[in-house]
Design a protein around this nucleic acid. Structure first.
Lengths: 133, 133
DNA sequence: CTGCTTGCAAAACATTTGCAATCCC
DNA sequence: GGGATTGCAAATGTTTTGCAAGCAG
């Protein structure tokens, strides 16, 4: 059951602060690791419950990626897309949008939104790769 | 452990035939439902094992979607993208590609691939909606 | 205070794995 | 026939839920 968000608690603050300060979408386990520093003893069940409630409240957004865990980001960011690094598995935000997507939408279908993920290697992983040879 | 694919079995044929004949990416449970008609008694473990092996063999491809189960499709299709219907939860293939994605890729990052999902309502769900009023 | 929210532990659900029986080549 | 593959059931992993204690407003 999804309980609507009625109170601001230490736990909820730690969770949204973790996502907000990371500046990139985080997985459940990344959220647990980061928010636990602020709130030791924070339970994983609270994270799942909070994420669900915040998504229902349109405060968080889900980012789906092939072959990787789902991530969550703040919903009030400007429209943007994501880069998924196959080296370190981190997800980065990318400015911009290719646009012109309605022309891809099949005849008779209604487009309401879209998501784009580019995958490859981030600068940090490329650096490590060339350092290794 | 992922066992490489060495033999063509009735089960594997039923699984790939289900995906191939559907003409759209299928979830694990869609695959079970469809392939079971051909192969009654087909176990869910076999489906998981087969999917993993076929992905490792680059025969299948994973399609990730926000708020919906992962789907699987044949890997040898022409480059294309997907439409996810929020009404019936079906995933459709869409021809075409917006292109020009390297310009979105951050400086110093290497783009190796990309995925695009448009979401909204399919023609069938739009029809039902207007029929209802 | 009041009742929403939490942490814990148990439950429910999803995925993987061990193994004997079966089936492909 | 021999080894890969399967189905089952058990193991493991993930997400949800019940409930008493704690906390926000």
């Amino acid at each position: 059951m999804i309980t609507p968000v009625r109170r601001q608690t230490r736990q909820r603050h730690a969770i949204t602060a973790a996502i907000s300060q990371a500046g990139r979408p985080l997985s459940v386990h990344e959220i647990l690791a980061i928010a636990s520093k602020d709130q030791p003893g924070l339970g994983i069940a609270t994270i799942y419950r909070t994420i669900k409630a915040l998504i229902a409240a349109h405060t968080l957004h889900e980012v789906a990626l092939p072959g990787a865990d789902v991530r969550f980001e703040l919903a009030d960011l400007d429209h943007h897309h994501h880069f998924h690094c196959r080296g370190c598995d981190k997800v980065y935000e990318m400015a911009g949008c290719p646009g012109n997507l309605r022309s891809l939408t099949p005849k008779g279908f209604l487009m309401e939104g879209h998501d784009l993920v580019i995958s490859g290697l981030c600068a940090s992983c490329l650096g490590k790769r060339s350092a290794r040879g």
